[in-house]
Design a protein around this nucleic acid. Structure first.
Lengths: 358, 358
DNA sequence: TATCTGTGTGTAACCGCATACATACTACCA
DNA sequence: TGGTAGTATGTATGCGGTTACACACAGATA
C-alpha cells in the first residue's frame, strides 16, 4: 500500500499514468497477489474476484510490464536472430520463418546484423547475454566459439542455422553436399564436363560442404577435378561478378582452363556471374550454363531465369525457432540436428527454352 | 547482505552462477552502491575502490542485467521496427539502416512483420507497449491509429517510415509525388503518351501520392488521364503480374485502352509486370517500357535491367532511428518531418541498349 | 578551534511483478 | 465435534539493479 502511494506521486514527474498491478488491485479492492493470480490464471481466484480484477484492468488500460516479469521469472520471452546481413535475400526468408514461429508462441525477435565481422559478432553476443535473451538463432560467420560458449554457460539456448560449427550446438541446415551434387550432376547430365565453381568463403563449413558436393559429383562421374576452375567468393553479388571475370580471364589465357558451365554457391553470386558473362558477350546458357544455390525469391525474375538449388528457407527459420524453444525447456536434452533436403529447380540458365523468345 | 546470502543459495537451482552486483560487491569488499557507481562512472568513487570493483567484475565475468536496469531507470534501450514484410527487399534495406544506427547507439532492434494485417499490427503494438520499448519505427499499413496513440500515451516515441498517416507523428519518407513525376516524365520524354500505372494499395498515403505524381505529370504535359490505365496492386510481385495481365486483356479488347509504357509503384510489381509481358511475347522496352520504384538491389540484375526511382532506403532507416532517439529525449519537441528526394535511375527497361546484345 | 565544503561509502527503499507462506473460511468425513 | 482437505486471499520478500539519504572524514576557511 505504501508502494501504491509512492507510485501515484512519482508519476507526476512523467505526466503519464502507466498503471501497475497496485493500481489495479486498489481499484478492484483486492491485493496484488490476487491481481497477479487473476491475470495469469494461476492459483486460486474466485470467479467474482477475477471478474473485478479483469474489469479494473480494462478500465485502467493495464498492460503488464514484461521486463518486471522477466526479473522475477528469469524468462524474457525474447530470442535473438544473429545474421550476417539481411541484405542478402536468403536471410529475410529465414527471418520470416523464425519470426512467425516466435510471435505465434509469445516470443519477440531481436535482429542483429554482423556483416560476418568477428568484432560485431562477439559484441552482439555480449549484448544478448546482458539482455538475458532466452535463446539465440545464429547464422555464424566467424567462429566466435568463446562468446557462444559464454552464452550457453549462462543458460541461453543456442541454435545454429544454415552454418554449422562442428558438433557443439543444435543446428538446422540443409544437406549442402547433396545440394551441390544435385547442381553439379544436373550440369553433368546436360553434357558439361568443364564446370567452374564459385565457392563461398572457405572458413564456413557450409562453403566447404558445397565444394565437397561439387567434387564428389565430378568424381562419381569420373571427371577430373581442376582446381583452376574453383574461385572463392563471399556470397555477395560483386564477388560473383569478380570471380567470373577472373575465371574468364584464365580461360582465355589459353592454358586449357576453359569451361562451359558454372556452379555458384549462392544465387547472389550467380547473379553477379551472369552479369559478368553478359558483359563479355557470352550467352547463358548457350555459351555458359549457370546454376545457383538458395532459390531466393528473385531467382525467377532474373533473365534468363536462374536454375538453382532450392533451400526451404522459411522452414529453416521456423524450425530453428521451434528448436530453440525446445532447447530452452530441455537444456540437457540430446543435440538436435535438423538436416533438410534441398531440391533442384531447373529454369532457363541451364536449359535453352523450348520456344525461343518471340 | 541478506540478499547476497539468498542469492548464493537460490543459484543452486540453476547450477549456473550468474554474477550480480552483490557478488561483485562482496568480492571487491565494497557495497552495491559503490559497485553501481564504479560501473557506471556516476557519483563519487575513489580510484582504488573503482579498480577493485572493475577487477572483481572481470574475475566474476560480470555482465549487467539490462532488464533489471530498465526497471529502475524506465529505459529499455530497445526500439522496434514494425514492417509489413521483410520479404520485400525494400524493407531489409531500411532495416539495415535502422539497425546500424541503433546498435551504434546502444539500442537493440525488435523485428515485427505485420503482413499489412490490422490484427497483427495492433497485436504487435500492444506487445511493444508491454515490453516498454523506448521507440517504434513503423511502416504502417492499416491505420491502427488508436494503438499508435496508446503507444504515444505511454511515452513511447513513434516515428513513421515510408508511409505517412496524416500529421500526427514524426515521419521519414521520400517525396513520392516528385518520384512518381520523375518516372512519368521520363516515359513522356521518351515519347510515350499512353502510360499505364500499377498502383500500390490505395489505403496507403504512399500509394495515393505516387498516383498523384503520375496524374500531375500527365496533366502538366497535357496528356489526358485515363482511369482504365490504372490498376491497383498490393506491392507484391504476383499482384504486378496479375495487374499487367488485366491491363493487357483490356488493351486487346479493342476499346482503345492500349498503352506503350507502364509505371509500377514498386520494383516487385514491376518484376511481375515484366514477367507478364514476356509471357505475352511482348518485348521490354520495344513494345512496352517499364519503370519501377524503390531501386531494390536486384533491380539491376533483372533483364532487361529495370529503370526505376531510387529511394535512399538505408538512409531512411538510419534517419528514422536517429529521429526516434531524438524524439525520446525531446518528447514535446515539434513534429519532425524528413522528406528525402528520390532519384531517377535509367536502365534498359525504358531505353533500348545502344549495343544490341551480342 | 569550530565550521564548511568536497569526497567517498554504505544502508535501505524502490522499480513492477511473482510467489512462498500464513491465514481464514467452507465443507466434508470420521 | 474435531480434524482435514480444498479454496480464497493477503503479507511480505526477492528478482538485480539505481539512487536518495545519512554519515564519515579530509582539508580549507573563518
Amino acid at each position: 500500500m505504501w508502494n501504491l502511494f509512492h507510485t501515484a506521486v512519482a508519476l507526476g514527474k512523467w505526466w503519464i499514468a502507466i498503471s501497475t498491478i497496485y493500481k489495479v488491485a486498489q481499484k478492484a479492492g483486492v491485493s496484488v497477489a490476487t491481481v497477479s493470480r487473476a491475470l495469469n490464471d494461476s492459483g486460486y481466484v474466485s470467479r467474482e474476484a477475477k471478474d473485478r480484477v479483469l474489469e479494473a484492468a480494462r478500465e485502467l488500460d493495464y498492460h503488464m510490464n514484461v521486463n518486471a516479469r522477466s526479473l522475477t521469472c528469469g524468462k524474457t520471452y525474447t530470442i535473438a536472430l544473429v545474421l550476417p546481413d539481411i541484405g542478402n535475400p536468403f536471410f529475410p526468408a529465414v527471418a520470416r520463418g523464425a519470426e512467425d514461429y516466435a510471435s505465434d508462441n509469445g516470443y519477440c525477435v531481436i535482429l542483429c546484423n554482423t556483416d560476418g565481422n568477428l568484432r560485431k559478432e562477439s559484441d552482439y553476443l555480449k549484448m544478448l547475454r546482458s539482455r538475458k535473451v532466452d535463446g539465440v538463432i545464429f547464422a555464424v560467420s566467424v567462429a566466435s566459439r568463446s562468446s557462444l560458449n559464454a552464452l550457453a554457460d549462462d543458460g541461453i539456448a543456442v541454435v545454429l542455422v544454415d552454418r554449422d560449427l562442428g558438433d557443439s550446438y543444435d543446428i538446422v541446415k540443409t544437406d549442402n553436399i547433396a545440394g551441390a551434387m544435385l547442381a553439379t550432376n544436373h550440369l553433368i547430365g546436360l553434357g558439361h564436363t568443364r564446370i567452374a565453381f564459385i565457392s563461398g568463403p572457405m572458413p564456413l563449413a557450409t562453403s566447404r560442404e558445397r565444394l565437397r558436393g561439387y567434387c564428389d559429383a565430378l568424381a562419381s562421374k569420373g571427371i577430373p577435378f581442376d582446381e583452376r576452375l574453383v574461385t572463392e567468393g563471399d556470397f555477395r553479388m560483386e564477388s560473383g561478378h569478380r570471380a567470373m571475370q577472373a575465371l574468364l580471364a584464365n580461360s582465355r589465357s589459353g592454358d586449357g582452363v576453359e569451361f562451359t558451365a558454372v556452379f555458384a554457391a549462392n544465387d547472389m553470386m550467380a547473379a553477379g556471374t551472369m552479369t559478368a558473362l553478359e558483359e563479355e558477350g557470352l550467352r547463358v546458357p548457350a555459351d555458359v550454363a549457370v546454376v545457383g544455390y538458395d532459390d531466393i525469391n528473385i531467382a525467377s525474375v532474373m533473365r534468363p531465369r536462374l536454375s538453382t538449388i532450392a533451400q526451404p528457407k522459411y522452414e529453416m527459420g521456423w524450425i530453428a525457432a521451434e528448436t530453440v524453444t525446445r532447447r530452452m525447456s530441455e537444456p540437457d536434452g540430446p543435440r538436435l540436428e535438423e538436416v533438410l533436403q534441398p531440391v533442384l529447380v531447373v529454369r532457363d540458365s541451364t536449359v535453352e527454352r523450348r520456344c525461343a523468345s518471340v
